[in-house]
Amino acid sequence: MHFHQILLFIIHKISGQRSENAPFYLLKGKKSGQTIQDVTYFQLHAFFSILPQLSKEDYDTAITELYKEQFIELKESTVHITDKGISAITQQKNVLLNGWQYRGKEHVFWKRLDLAVQTLSQFHANDKKFVPNQKDIDTQQFVKDYLIQHNFRQFNLSKEMKHELHLLLENPSLDDLHRTFFVYRLSGFNTIGLTWEQLARYHKLSELDAKIIFLECLHTMLDNISREASPLLYSLAKNIRIETPLTDSAFKTNSLLEKGYSLEQIADLRKLKINTIEDHVIEIVSANKSFPISTFISKEQVYEILHLSSELQTKKLTEIKNRLPEVSYFQVRLALTRSEQLHE
């Protein structure tokens, strides 16, 4: 999926509801209440935090191009997709990204894999003095322990790992471009990986597109690693999946909620603003479909809000809130978040 396609896909979902910068924050993985709730409202889990390094400059360039092509337009400070834009969205077999699940941790896995392959390759060539591509100590320590634990000098780790990689790369959801980018980023004895620019140039793509293709492959492989079929990569991917996809701060709030504290008490205890705690609740509800919201909002209120939202064809908080003065913004957000989960 190319960068422009991703932008169109996102803007299609948020059309008329959010500003032109909302996709930027989503792709960067901004940990604000707004962005996190939007992930659930608009079903954008795939794209959350996939490009943490994205520069505003590159983003603006791409958005400007979309305006120029008349795929999108700006009306009353929200971004809208045009009919031309909708028809430009190519039908995807399925979206291969899973940003919400990995949140950048996929790169930790990649670093481990890169260093493990490099080390095995060097040792196989009997050239044990080499400069590791991965410099950070956590990765080096992890891979060292991993290799020793797997008895890499005796056991045929190299062969087994290649076999597992092969199997995962053969996944029919992927195409050869994915596989090529993945394998050509790896390094080993006398075989150095290619830079994004080199990969992109060879395939006449932009660097951003090259990174996205690589990421699709990485996510798909991680999604399919299993203890049974790929035990070696499974243990290399230790602690990569986020079991409870909560930010640290929301996680703390969640623990206090479970102990029965009220929002005011938690705000007090943690010396945080009540708004922040409310953001956390939205995040928790987004992450956990069965989290009970009845203490914050009645069933009737949920119904009322959702009814209004579909009647007005909007997810804009102010518009809903203006028609229902007795509910709070927080309650509107809660209702909207829950409703999307019911549709999943």
Partner: peptide, 17 residues
């Protein structure tokens, strides 16, 4: 050096076993 990219061959070069 513009040889055709082939991921299977490349993977085999990296891990020849």
């Amino acid at each position: 050096d513009q040889v055709e990219m082939n991921w299977k061959k490349r993977l085999h070069t990296l891990l020849p076993l």
